[in-house]
Design a protein around this nucleic acid. Structure first.
Length: 278
DNA sequence: AAGAGGTGCAACCGCCGCGTC
DNA sequence: TGACGCGGCGGTTGCACCTCT
């Protein structure tokens, strides 16, 4: 663990040399929470001084936003959240804070860590650039259907409402009806997204049609047709996943979907998606 | 049981844009 | 108008913990 003070650094002023760094203590957390509860957030440097914290304003802000804020969600990302991250990242790239705005309770830091530790790791193992179109296609054709399948499996009504796609079927998935275990949350997330993207349109009172939901707009040359997603309070269909079966000749440029190595790896990555609880 | 290597994540760093003086 | 301070953001680091051998 790093020393508590940065006295060894090249700060000239005595005050600066007393600044603490490294992990926050319970006492510091308490001070910060108490101060913000009484006075609100913002003006972080002043806040740090007034609260009696020997921390930089930046450090206080980071600690509050990423850890102490009451509405922070802890624990693994849900499949719904993971799908949103993948889709939003395909549209916006590493705009973590923007992506985080669409995942209530999740921080940009958490999403960034998720992407770097899980998604990029798999991209490396597959020897695919995580920013490449190839990787995006992998996400859309293999991993997202897998996530949707997982969402369905987690759904309490799944056994009645949905004939789960087998692994072999996921490349040409049946309509994803009643998929989500947390439909209201997922809908809320999608609607938040829709509200900020005028290119997306509501197509009925009961269902939400998301034309060009993010992926392809970022990659206009993608051979995938503009995806059309339906989000419904009782049914949830992602037409974008109704792609031609790979074995039937999926026209995906650059990536050979029949490549056993790629397929094997893609289907052995449940760990990536946090399917199993820790 | 213990050491090595891998993983996850909290925290820090550096840069940039904006507001103020 | 340029210097300065601050907040916000994305990239990176370092360490505790976990898994493997």
């Amino acid at each position: 663990m790093r020393p508590v003070t940065n006295a060894s650094m090249h700060n000239s002023s005595e005050e600066e040399s007393e600044l603490r760094r490294g992990p926050w203590t319970l006492e510091e957390d308490t001070l910060l929470i108490h101060y913000i509860t009484c006075h609100g957030e913002g003006r972080w440097n002043l806040l740090a001084k007034c609260a009696g914290l020997k921390r930089t304003g930046k450090s206080c802000r980071l600690r509050w936003l990423n850890y102490l804020k009451p509405d922070i969600k802890r624990g693994n990302l849900t499949p719904q959240e993971q799908i949103l991250i993948l889709e939003l990242h395909s549209k916006w790239g590493n705009r973590w804070s923007k992506i985080a705005q669409h995942l209530p309770g999740r921080t940009d830091n958490e999403i960034k860590n998720y992407w770097r530790t899980r998604v990029q790791k798999q991209a490396r193992q597959l020897k695919i650039d995580s920013n490449s179109k190839k990787f995006l296609e992998a996400l859309r054709h293999f991993w997202m259907p897998r996530l949707l399948e997982k969402m369905e499996q987690n759904s309490p009504s799944s056994s009645e409402s949905f004939t789960s796609a087998s692994t072999a079927e996921v490349n040409n998935p049946a309509p994803f009806a009643e998929l989500t275990s947390e439909p209201s949350k997922f809908l809320a997330n999608c609607n938040d997204f829709l509200n900020e993207n005028s290119s997306l349109s509501i197509c009925s009172s009961d269902s939400v049609r998301m034309s060009q939901f993010p992926g392809n707009s970022a990659h206009p040359s993608s051979p995938i047709p503009n995806d059309c997603y339906y989000v419904d309070s009782t049914s949830f269909e992602m037409e974008g996943f109704n792609q031609p079966n790979m074995s039937a000749g999926c026209h995906v440029a650059e990536l050979d979907w029949s490549n056993d190595y790629v397929a094997e790896n893609l289907w052995n990555m449940d760990d990536l998606w946090q399917f199993s609880s820790k």
